[in-house]
């Protein structure tokens, strides 16, 4: 009986974890789609700062795959740059505010996604 209960508990735990993982995956997938639509034109399809629009830019976009450089960037600064534009964090004004197309929740998801892309070891 104990063995049966443990098995049921383990199964329930596995399913719950699975649900949590799939919800997180869905958020990552959505953020990835948003990145492809809005960010990749400058930050690149490989998230390396080499987008199709970088040919004439006076300041090159940030390489989001650069683990060391991204690790030094506070998450709240990422959120502010996306919401208010580069100038709000003393960076290039070529990075516009995306508040007109991304919701606050999506901007937060995007910051999480950037931490996922750079493999910075933060949540």
């Amino acid at each position: 009986m104990n063995g049966f209960m443990i098995a049921v508990g383990a199964l329930a735990g596995f399913l719950l974890l699975g649900q949590g993982a799939s919800a997180a995956d869905a958020k990552i997938d959505h953020a990835s789609r948003l990145y492809d639509t809005y960010c990749a034109q400058c930050h690149g399809v490989s998230r390396n700062g080499k987008g199709v629009n970088t040919v004439g830019l006076s300041v090159q976009p940030r390489d989001h795959s650069d683990t060391a450089a991204m690790a030094s960037l506070p998450r709240d600064q990422m959120v502010r740059a996306i919401r208010e534009g580069g100038a709000a964090v003393n960076k290039s004004a070529l990075m516009p505010s995306w508040a007109s197309v991304l919701t606050d929740a999506e901007i937060e998801q995007m910051a999480d996604y950037l931490l996922y892309v750079c493999k910075c070891g933060k949540p």
Binding site: A40, Q41, G44, V45, S46, N48, K50, G51, V52, V55
Partner: peptide, 19 residues
Amino acid sequence: AGGVMWFKHAKPGEPRDTI
């Protein structure tokens, strides 16, 4: 130049992505 939806025609490359 990038079509109706540019991302669909973008490919990674050096020194930058191309259409």
